[in-house]
C-alpha cells in the first residue's frame, strides 16, 4: 500500500454570502476562545514541568560503576566529555596508579545522550531537568567532584511541579505532578 498522489481542488468560494459566512465563522471561533480561553501557558518560575525519568537532562557519573574506558569521551559529538588523569591509590595493593576519569563541560554539551547510551556499565545516567543557571562560564565546566552527584535543582525548591498531559479537548492539560515519585 504505497502512497498515492491525489489532486485536490481549493475549496471554492462562490456565491454572494461566501465572504459573509467566512467572516462569521472566523469571528465565532475568536469569540469562542475569548469566552473559554483553554490556556496552556506555564507560569514558569512559579510552576515548572516535572519531566519524565526518560528525559535527557544533565548527565551524572556513578564513579563506582565506571571502568575508566573513555567510550563516552570518544563518542561525544560536541567534545564536551573529556578524560582527566588522576593519581589514585589502589585499595587492594596500596600502589599509586594513574587513572582516567570522565569530566563534562556543560558549555559544550548538547544533551544528545550518546555517552549515556554508549557506557558499557551504565555508569552515566541522566537526571530529568536541565534548567539550571550558572553565574559564570567556568562553573559550567564540571570537575570530577561535581560530576559525581546530581546538580542542585533550584527551580524545584520554589515552584510547583506540573505535568502536561495530552488531552483530546484541549491539546495539553496542565496537572499538578504528585510529589515524592523521585527515584
Amino acid at each position: 500500500m504505497p502512497a498515492r498522489p491525489v489532486v485536490k481542488r481549493l475549496p471554492a468560494r462562490r456565491g454572494l454570502f461566501a465572504g459573509f459566512k467566512g467572516n462569521v465563522d472566523a469571528i465565532t471561533i475568536g469569540l469562542k476562545y475569548l469566552v473559554d480561553p483553554k490556556r496552556i501557558t506555564l507560569i514558569y518560575p512559579n510552576e515548572y514541568i516535572k519531566l519524565d525519568p526518560g528525559y535527557r537532562g544533565f548527565i551524572v557519573l556513578e564513579p563506582k560503576k565506571c571502568i575508566n574506558c573513555s567510550s563516552c569521551a570518544r563518542i561525544c559529538p560536541a567534545a564536551a566529555m573529556r578524560m582527566i588523569r588522576r593519581m589514585e591509590e589502589d585499595p587492594k595493593t596500596g600502589k599509586k596508579k594513574m587513572k582516567l576519569w570522565p569530566v563534562i563541560n556543560y558549555q559544550r554539551c548538547i544533551f544528545c545522550g550518546y555517552c549515556v547510551d554508549v557506557c558499557p556499565t551504565e555508569a552515566l545516567y541522566t537526571v530529568p531537568y536541565h534548567d539550571i543557571v550558572y553565574e559564570n562560564m567556568a562553573e559550567m565546566d564540571w570537575g570530577l567532584e561535581t560530576f559525581v552527584k546530581p546538580p542542585e535543582y533550584p527551580t524545584a525548591k520554589e515552584g510547583i511541579p506540573v505535568k502536561y498531559i495530552v488531552d483530546e479537548e484541549k491539546g495539553l492539560v496542565k496537572v499538578r505532578a504528585e510529589e515524592g515519585e523521585e527515584e
Binding site: 475568536g30 476562545y33 475569548l34 480561553p37 483553554k38 490556556r39 496552556i40 501557558t41 507560569i43
Partner: peptide, 13 residues
C-alpha cells in the same frame, strides 16, 4: 488581554 485569551496565552501578568 483579549488577544491573549483568544490566543490561549495569559497576556500581561
Amino acid at each position: 488581554k483579549a488577544t491573549a485569551r483568544v490566543q490561549r496565552r495569559l497576556g500581561p501578568y
